[in-house]
């Protein structure tokens, strides 16, 4: 476990984890607002939404670092299987 934590890949992974934690904490509100839409989450906020992932990428790829961005389709409901 000696990989440097300040490597660009590792930094982007930490950002992804932060974005994911934000997504997890706000999923109910996101489902109410963006159900079935594709959203881009960058630096803990929704920076764009669209009807398809390609459209979404087109909107945000020049504005944000895509390696730190979560592209996600908001579900209508979430199951708890166990």
């Amino acid at each position: 476990m000696s990989s440097p934590g300040d490597h660009p890949y590792r930094k982007s992974l930490y950002r992804i984890l932060e974005n994911r934690a934000w997504l997890d904490a706000h999923i109910e509100a996101l489902m109410a607002q963006y159900k079935s839409k594709w959203i881009a989450i960058y630096r803990k906020e929704v920076v764009a939404s669209a009807d398809s992932p390609d459209e979404l990428r087109g909107i945000c790829q020049d504005k944000v670092d895509m390696d730190e961005t979560i592209i996600f389709q908001v579900p209508g409901a979430v199951r708890t299987p166990i």
């Binding site: 476990m1 934590g5 590792r10 984890l17 592209i71 996600f72």
Partner: peptide, 24 residues
Amino acid sequence: VKIFGDNIDLTNIPIPYTGKYDNP
């Protein structure tokens, strides 16, 4: 090697992505 508690950082392990929407 043994690592415990707060010293653990799973991002130190190289975990590959598979699909383009798997994140993390």
